[in-house]
Design a protein around this nucleic acid. Structure first.
Lengths: 252, 252
DNA sequence: CGGTTACTTGATGTCGTTCAAGAATCGTGG
DNA sequence: CCACGATTCTTGAACGACATCAAGTAACCG
């Protein structure tokens, strides 16, 4: 799909002075003045704090949100009053894409720590994408990428055991933080063990036990919310299903 | 997002004489001549047969595919050689959206029974969406809807037990078939028990046992691949987590 | 500080997997 | 058309990974 050669999108990340729209700023991108136009519709919100909601499930869909700094979790109500944590969103990541279809949010977004969030009014964004083909393409890619992530999670929940899930989770955080110029091996968890477990389809106790086990095995250091990955290679091989017996399911 | 009032999209489904593009033909939609233009880029492929591939993981992404009749499964290779079934695709449903991002297919699509499939060359589609705002909006919705489905699956795999998963699966098939004018209570499964299990994160044996149990409980009749739902209401309440003890996970 | 919430750790239970074997179905060629 | 082997499906029995239950400890917050 490299038929929109017009632009270099790293540009946009730089151009977007006040807001890191790097999600829309993929490898190839936008002409400088288009960047300007995109930048114009971005609303900067004052810093939000732990517990604040970006939106709640049932709310009318108006905007996409881009995490600038901090972190946000999204979660959906499950039938009997529980919650399913759908994701943790780090700087540069976009929230709200799932609501475009029904024009209503099906999940809630809650700020995990003091965070800066940009708001992108969707109707205005759509007007822009209609005018700028390469931006349209970036939007398609963005939505598609989200589907890809979900697919990865399906594989995780469908086929991996507790150990593999937690290892994958840690490596995912690591990679995403690193992409934003932060340390890949030394970071703080802004979410509780409970939330991690919920996200990974595990009980809190299991998460806790695994953390201590990983530490005992010299894979990482855990001190409260402070994480240090010591053996990334080993964690990766854990995820890869190097763990002896996994359910082998080929069919037809 | 109802700012593109131009069109009625049920129109398109009718207008698309040879191909059921109802996925792009949502409640509100396209002007008749736009429909014509969309129709022009659709390639009709000769009927495909059980075992044929639409694409394989690693293939270059060129087109989206729309199931006209029959059914298709998509599946991704999991690290150690197993597969994760990602979805079963019935008439009217679109395949390949996850490949837009990387321009490479990350999963394979295999035909489950003799099927008619339409091909939509993506670059040509993108040219159209750039010109027709309402079509662009439909595309955004389509991608967003896919994310919503995945989200539902995450909740299923993360929080539901075997019984709830199978019930949800049956009801999902039922609803989707019904939407296409087929019976909601009497249908044939084009996929094997193994594939169902893989999709739902369960062992074949568990699926088999549940089918017999559901039948014993008078919820349905199962005869080989032939399914008759007898008590849809009861199945729905099963899914809803009416099943006694579910993992309650609220946090923070 | 004192109370609440988050986290850890151990003991026990259970749902679903795994192992094993038989039955039904399908496909294929004589 | 029937026989044969190969799948697919079903059913039973045993095991195991993770959940649940139950305390106890440590951090957080007003």
């Amino acid at each position: 799909m490299s038929h929109h050669k017009v632009i270099s999108l790293e540009t946009i990340r730089i151009a977007c002075r006040n807001c890191s729209l790097s999600s829309l700023c993929l490898p190839m991108g936008l002409a400088p003045d288009d960047v300007e136009r995109l930048d114009e519709i971005v609303k900067r919100t004052r810093p939000l704090h732990r517990g604040d909601f970006l939106f709640r499930d049932g709310d009318r869909f108006r905007s996409l949100y881009v995490v600038k700094t901090g972190s946000v979790k999204t979660f959906a109500p499950s039938p009997e009053g529980g919650e399913q944590v759908l994701g943790f969103h780090l700087p540069g990541e976009v929230i709200g894409l799932d609501a475009i279809d029904k024009d209503i949010h099906a999940c809630s977004a809650k700020v995990l720590e003091t965070s800066a969030i940009c708001e992108l009014p969707f109707t205005r964004l759509e007007e822009l994408t209609a005018t700028i083909p390469s931006l349209q393409h970036q939007m398609f890619r963005l939505l598609s990428k989200e589907i890809g992530h979900d697919t990865d999670m399906l594989l995780l929940l469908g086929k991996k055991n507790a150990e593999e899930r937690l290892a994958a989770f840690l490596l995912s955080l690591s990679k995403r933080l690193h992409k934003r110029g932060l340390s890949a091996t030394d970071f703080y968890l802004s979410m509780s063990r409970h939330e991690i477990g919920n996200y990974l389809g595990l009980a809190v106790e299991t998460v806790s036990r695994l953390f201590t086990r990983f530490q005992d095995d010299g894979l990482m250091n855990v001190d409260r919310k402070h994480i240090q990955l010591l053996d990334v290679g080993m964690l990766e091989s854990l995820v890869g299903g190097a763990g002896q017996n996994r359910r082998q399911q080929q069919q037809s």
